[in-house]
């Protein structure tokens, strides 16, 4: 199988700001690539270049085999795009929005109507089908926007932060829809600032920060970069921390970190559940009361933190994004 999307050394500068500074990536056909990064990392700019909305200053890209720079119309024939700022016409009803998009994909009038009806039902918008989109909730607008991206059943779909700002239930709904698309062989490039989302949906992940790719691989590979499993224990009594530490020095494969205040101890382990059982037995024998014990695998959050030196989402970043959104 070929690649649905390829990008080689994409660069986009805005005056002095290097929004995207040499991004290369691949989306193998039928797979999901998660582009993970904080606000302002260059995710949206990358998507805008790949979807022919802006021209890169340097680099090359193909989508569904068509050159983004030389044949943008061929690219547009093969893609569906759903953005962070839902691109729906708020004066038009949901039905009118989808019919218009279908007509602009040049579906015959009858087919356009049928397809709109079908998508409205699929995305549970049939009750609101004839209301102007202005009256829709945030989640409904996103669903309508995604439905617009799917009108022509494109083989490649770009989703720019599809769940940012959605409540947990709408987010779960969105994940289901995306999973289904992939199940049918659609290739997806998805940007997100939620590590959980990348973990859930993406076959491969690239981590992007300050316009550059700083890591790539599967979710497991990225987690492995941060380190292996750890055993975490919370003891019931602070006096027993010293005893617990001695146990963990035997069970674990590295230094034991102990926090007196939270009565928590952490040690790297290599034996997985075997190490866990070993520790439980030892604590039992020595009558050390344990409040909580478990094997903890590093999350993508840990990976992101160790790769970028900062958290994936911060309050300041959100504020910055809002300002940027208003300015653009």
């Amino acid at each position: 199988m070929g690649d649905a999307v390829t990008a080689d050394g994409l660069v986009k500068h805005y005056k002095d700001v290097k929004a995207v500074d040499g991004v290369s990536l691949r989306v193998p056909e039928g797979s999901v690539l998660g582009v993970l990064g904080p606000n302002g990392a260059g995710k949206t700019t990358t998507v805008r270049m790949l979807t022919t909305l802006i021209r890169p200053d340097a680099g090359a890209a193909t989508v569904a085999g068509a050159d983004v720079l030389r044949d943008p119309q061929a690219v547009r024939r093969s893609i569906g795009v759903s953005g962070q700022y839902a691109a729906v016409d708020e004066y038009l009803s949901g039905r009118e929005n989808l019919e218009m998009v279908a007509r602009l994909y040049h579906l015959p009038a009858k087919e356009a109507k049928a397809r709109a009806r079908e998508l409205l039902r699929q995305f549970r918008l049939d009750d609101a089908a004839n209301r102007p989109a202005k009256t829709y909730s945030g989640g409904m607008r996103r669903r309508l926007d995604l439905a617009g991206a799917l009108v022509a059943r494109p083989p490649v779909i770009f989703l720019d932060e599809p769940t940012t700002g959605l409540d947990p239930r709408s987010r779960g709904d969105m994940w289901d829809v995306i999973n289904d698309l992939v199940g049918q062989g659609t290739s997806v490039l998805l940007t997100t600032q939620y590590l959980e989302e990348a973990d859930r949906l993406a076959d491969n992940i690239v981590v992007i920060d300050h316009g550059r790719i700083i890591a790539e691989g599967t979710a497991d590979e990225l987690k492995a970069q941060v380190g292996g499993e750890r055993l975490e224990i919370t003891v019931a009594e602070a006096e027993r921390i010293a005893d617990a530490t001695r146990v963990l020095e035997v069970v674990g494969s590295g230094t034991v970190e102990a926090d007196r205040h939270t009565r928590r101890l952490i040690v790297p382990v290599t034996g997985g559940t075997q190490s866990l059982l070993q520790a439980v037995r030892a604590f039992d024998e020595q009558a050390i009361a344990v409040q909580d014990i478990g094997i903890r695998r590093p999350t993508l959050d840990d990976a992101f933190l160790s790769l970028t030196g900062h958290k994936a989402v911060s309050d300041e970043a959100d504020d910055f994004e809002q300002l940027a959104g208003q300015a653009s």
Binding site: Q122, R153, Q184
Partner: peptide, 27 residues
């Protein structure tokens, strides 16, 4: 949204029709 999932798979599957670039007048 489980109903969405099952319905999607039944409709988005095949028939990738020819998408063409539009005419100025039509669009």
């Amino acid at each position: 949204m489980t109903d969405v999932r099952t319905r999607l798979s039944s409709t988005t599957a095949d028939d990738s029709q020819e998408i063409r670039t539009g005419s100025l007048i039509g669009d």
